[in-house]
Design a protein around this nucleic acid. Structure first.
Lengths: 199, 199
DNA sequence: GTCTATAACCCGATAGAC
DNA sequence: GTCTATCGGGTTATAGAC
């Protein structure tokens, strides 16, 4: 144990954080190790000391950290919702806010790498699947607390994450928040038909 | 004019078709020109004769051909729907069918390249935006013919495409048709609340 | 129009001094 | 733990014969 990560600005953490950003903006294949080390102000040798598994091991750590960040955003947004049936829609609006402030660059830290990893890297594909599974569980939990039964809550959570991911991709490619606003409207409709005591 | 493409099996067409498949399976950055020429059984020199702009010019042509193929699938599926309010859901089920038969490999020919192109290749980003815009128009047209007004039809078409793209990504990464089935259910709910004369 | 050979470059990863 | 120099291989793209 000791103090494995005593310096929060240590090279390892900076490498992971820089990779989260690069995977969000351009995906795994387009991201060169040299670009990561430059952005993290870390030398090549330090990188391979911390991540003997190379680029793939670092990307795995970055996918996990990115997944945690998104999960925190979803959890906080759902908790702050004015009403249960507004929570899902608020998530879409929260994503729109992050995107517009980064000029459509800072997207989902998992999506691009997820698509690239299918049939190419079982390790990264599994990490992406874990991230999605975790977010779905968070969305489902919100619906269950609002009175929806487990099975329909799971189904609606799946659809909600699909809507959020798809709308974010459309918004980034088109450079417009319109798809995320339309996703918010759709999520409002879906939540109202699923949550009891709301008509 | 003459007969610019008299042989439909000519190198140019085979190169484009092979690229559509590779962009669907692994995206732009992971696809090497050598892999394209090998799969198309075309020599390197022939490739640069047909596409002097190199890899990016070929990808542009492939995105356009892929967009046409998806649009044809959507149009046919919507036309064959048993009822107007089932059309969108049928599209999700059609995608699930294609995916299961290809073991989750043959996904959207645009999605991965779209995410990779943001902030990296304005040409490919614009082609991806055009593809999405065309599919949205096709979905909107179906809704308008079913009696939905232009503006809400456009909004629902945006959400429907987001749902289809997002659910396909989740399904491929998780290796399960569940997200696409849940997307179909959600699309059925959304279509019923939007289309008049259906309660 | 087609093909082979190769140039010029960049990639991920390593070696070894410090 | 940190850094520099470099290796071997794969990348896109070109040259030039046919």
């Amino acid at each position: 144990m000791g103090k494995p990560q005593s310096d929060p600005r240590g090279g390892r953490e900076r490498l992971i954080t820089a990779t989260v950003g690069l995977l969000s903006r351009q995906g795994y294949e387009a991201t060169a190790v040299k670009q990561i080390t430059t952005e993290a102000a870390a030398p090549m040798g330090s990188f391979y000391f911390h991540f003997p598994g190379g680029k793939e091991e670092l990307a795995l750590a970055a996918l996990r950290q990115g997944a945690e960040g998104v999960d925190a955003l979803l959890t906080e947004t759902l908790a702050r919702a004015t009403a249960p049936e507004e929570g899902l829609a608020d998530c879409a609006l929260a994503l729109a806010d992050v995107l517009t402030r980064s000029d459509w660059l800072d997207g989902c830290p998992v999506a691009a790498t997820a698509l690239e990893s299918i049939g190419r890297s079982p390790v990264l594909r599994a990490a992406a699947a874990e991230a999605f599974e975790r977010w779905i569980a968070t969305l489902q939990h919100h619906l269950v607390r609002a009175g929806v039964a487990d099975a329909p809550a799971r189904s609606l959570a799946n659809a909600a994450l699909a809507l959020l991911e798809g709308a974010e991709m459309l918004a980034r490619v088109q450079g417009s928040a319109e798809p995320l606003h339309d996703a918010a409207s759709a999520l409002r409709v879906l939540a109202r038909t699923a949550i009891p005591s709301v008509r």
